[in-house]
Simulated assay, not measured.
Amino acid sequence: LHDGTEYKGDEVKLVGVDVRTDLAVLKVEAHKRLPVAELGSSSKVRIGDWVIAIGNPFGFEGTVTVGVISAKGRSNLSLREGASQQDFLQTDAAINPGNSGGPLLNLEGKVVGINTAISTSTGYSAGVGFAVPIDLAKTVFPQLIKKGKVERGWLGVYIQPLTSDMKEALGVDHGLIVNEVIPDGPAEKAGMKSQDVIIEFDRKPIGSVPDLQGSVAVFPVGKAATVKVIRKGKAKTFKVKIAKMPEEVAENRPLKSEEMEESANWLGLEVQDSPDRRGVVVVGVFPDSPGADAGIIVGDVIRRVGQHDVENVRDYEKAKKILSGETRPILFWVRSSRSGRHKFVAVRPE
């Protein structure tokens, strides 16, 4: 502790861990009353509010840095490790390796967040740090203390926010697009499909990834939720029986490098047959091309172009022929080479 007191061995017990939020609860068998920090409310924090970060960056104990709340509700961040259920507070208070787990305080000294990650190209603070909102932590701690783990509702889909190009391509103005429907999951059993755009859950509008994740997580397991989507321009409503979230996630499959049938450049992309015959692998991306601008990289696997499923180069060429004169953004369904998960990418032709 700050006064030099140490607790170790049998004096410290790991009560529970929640990987999705990157939080844990420790129990300390202390022989005296320990000082505790008062928890505040992250929902009351406003962008521009001053905050204080405390931690042990690079082993320097009790380091204090200050900054402001730069943004709220940050999600869909590609982190090498850490929270996958993301609704972060963003701050420019310096956060470095060793700060994780330390408090983010308001000017009243109340904890509004728990420092967890940074966005940087160097490994050191670049003024873009993230903290788990304390209101989210408050929903996690009671279950960790009582059960040692967190049980959540599960819809069985992977989702992502809509960009302006994706909205134009799909003809919608809001919602979250379904990248992938998990086989035999609640959503698939109810009839939901990839490329559905979720606009309501339990009759409540959905405006962000944290909105949906939070709503599904606390929805009673075993009960049916009403999910409203836009599919091919038309509204559809499904009754989805929410399941308990599985403890394990399927492992990503690595791509093999084999000589396959190839396709010439279209939209700045060169592709060849995927080894498993489930799509085409991107083997080349031309700089400053539509494909590069959309974020497609070598190794990504294209599974669908527009409304056309792609299992091989011939399917890709058919879609290319049909869509070659398109001027609006074209929606690609892609399996990311980085995460192994599916996502939608809107490619705007030149």
Rank of each mutant, 00 (worst) to 15 (best):
R203L: 03
G67I: 03
K232I: 03
R231N: 12
F238R: 06
S337H: 08
V172E: 07
K8H: 09
L144N: 03
V112W: 01
R348K: 14
L34H: 07
P287Q: 06
L269R: 11
P290M: 04
Q85I: 04
L136S: 05
G306I: 03
Q307L: 12
N252P: 00
K241Q: 12
V281T: 12
D300C: 09
A225S: 14
P161T: 12
L1C: 11
R314Y: 06
A94W: 02
P290H: 06
Q272A: 07
S41E: 14
S119L: 10
V197F: 04
R304C: 00
A225D: 07
I242Q: 01
T63L: 06
N56H: 07
P220V: 14
A217I: 04
V172N: 08
K44Y: 05
L255I: 07
D3I: 09
P142F: 05
S43F: 06
E38A: 12
S289K: 09
M166E: 15
S84F: 08
S75K: 06
R33F: 08
N179V: 03
T91F: 02
A24M: 09
V347K: 00
G171P: 02
P210D: 01
R33Q: 14
V216I: 15
L269T: 11
E311N: 13
A224P: 01
R338I: 04
L155Y: 00
F60R: 11
F344L: 11
K223Y: 05
S41N: 15
P275A: 13
V178E: 00
V66M: 10
S257G: 09
S125L: 05
K44L: 14
E251G: 12
I242E: 02
G129N: 04
K138A: 13
V19A: 11
P103E: 04
Q143L: 07
D276M: 10
G48A: 09
S324R: 13
A53I: 06
R278L: 07
K244M: 10
G48N: 08
P275H: 10
V218A: 15
E247P: 07
V271Y: 00
E350N: 15
G9N: 10
V281C: 08
P133I: 06
T116W: 02
Q307R: 10
I230T: 08
G185S: 12
V249K: 15
G175R: 01
V17H: 12
L255E: 10
